[in-house]
């Protein structure tokens, strides 16, 4: 239901078409945007059968400090090429060498490449999840009083300034990972919708969706973010902080990839829904207006006609009966 894909649909469909058995190679040159200040360049600079996919991300430098390179090496190893001028990272798909590969391998490659943004932005989450695992291990040796500072307090806050005014903060502790989104509403209406929408999230657990992560919403920066530079908040500011608390059950090795994909799309999903809700309200308003217009139309003729002279086709006149 209005879920957003994790992958880039254009890259996915383009690669799938080109890798199809009966496809004929053709050149392509597209610069396209994706959410969160990501830009892709899909091109065939060398030959039609070598597709170069490059990505640039606003927060690339931060991602690198959180180990993005290692993750990308792991995911794209043999396909990585020298980053294209003006981009942060490039992979190249050679259609000729892929042609002889089994279909599953092609599908897997399409899936991987179309998840380029997701994988690059997974770095701080993966790091935090690993840190959680090690803190959890260490914590087993202590009671809550005897634990050393590092274990009790949890790890560093990893900040990802992925949009001009908005950031994601990830912090691992021995029993949870906290993910905080700072989110800015450009418009008052959106803020109101946003609040209603978030309240649903907050209430989800009360209504018995026990597996859902705990969600908190507030207007000033949560305690976890103390000491972070560039924080805004408080009354009168249009900033909100949405905190997700991920519990160990969300962080198991089986769940972790899905959790990362999911939480990454939160902001876009959130704004998409605000906009979809507005569309829904608009359709109700149109409906209402149409109803009112109909009432008005029905009301008008009686007044205008009352007592007016009318002519029949033959020219005789008569008075309308009031």
């Amino acid at each position: 239901m209005l879920l957003l894909d994790y992958q880039n649909v254009l890259i996915e469909s383009l690669l799938r078409d080109r890798l199809a058995p009966d496809a004929s190679p053709s050149s392509v040159d597209q610069i396209v945007s994706d959410f969160d200040n990501v830009t892709f360049h899909i091109s065939t600079p060398e030959s039609k059968s070598k597709i170069l996919v490059s990505i640039t991300i606003k927060c690339w430098k931060e991602l690198v400090t959180y180990g993005a390179q290692a993750i990308l090496d792991r995911e794209y190893g043999p396909y990585i090429v020298q980053p294209e001028q003006g981009y942060d990272f490039s992979v190249q798909v050679d259609l000729d060498t892929m042609a002889s590969k089994p279909q599953e391998e092609k599908d897997e490659l399409v899936r991987r490449v179309s998840l380029l943004k997701r994988n690059a932005m997974a770095a701080p989450f993966e790091q935090a999840f690993d840190e959680f695992a090690s803190l959890q291990d260490q914590a087993k040796n202590y009671s809550s009083e005897t634990a050393p500072q590092g274990v009790r307090e949890g790890g560093e806050v990893r900040a990802i300034h992925y949009r001009e005014e908005e950031a994601i903060y990830v912090k691992a502790s021995h029993d949870r990972v906290t993910v905080i989104f700072s989110t800015v509403f450009k418009e008052e209406t959106d803020r109101v919708y946003g609040k209603v929408f978030l309240q649903e999230f907050v209430d989800a657990r009360k209504r018995g969706v026990q597996n859902a992560p705990q969600v908190l919403f507030r207007h000033d920066a949560p305690m976890e973010l103390q000491g972070q530079p560039g924080l805004r908040g408080g009354r009168g500011e249009n900033v909100g902080y949405v905190t997700f608390v991920l519990f160990p059950r969300h962080l198991t090795p089986q769940k972790r990839d899905e959790t990362i994909s999911h939480i990454q799309t939160f902001r876009d999903y959130f704004h998409y829904h605000i906009k979809a809700s507005k569309a829904y309200i608009h359709s109700r308003m149109r409906r209402r207006t149409a109803d009112f217009l109909q009432v008005l139309r029905r009301a008008r003729p009686e007044e205008a006609d009352a007592g007016k002279e009318r002519k029949t086709a033959s020219g005789r006149t008569f008075r309308a009966q009031a």
């Binding site: 957003l4 894909d5 880039n8 649909v9 254009l10 396209v32 945007s33 994706d34 959410f35 969160d36 876009d268 704004h271 998409y272 906009k275 979809a276 569309a279 608009h282 359709s283 149109r286």
Partner: peptide, 19 residues
């Protein structure tokens, strides 16, 4: 317009993937 509004919202968020 109801359909068009939803068509656009899906075009923008699901296909073009832009805010």
């Amino acid at each position: 317009w109801d359909h068009m509004e939803r068509f656009w919202s899906n075009s923008i968020f699901k296909y073009l993937r832009v805010e």
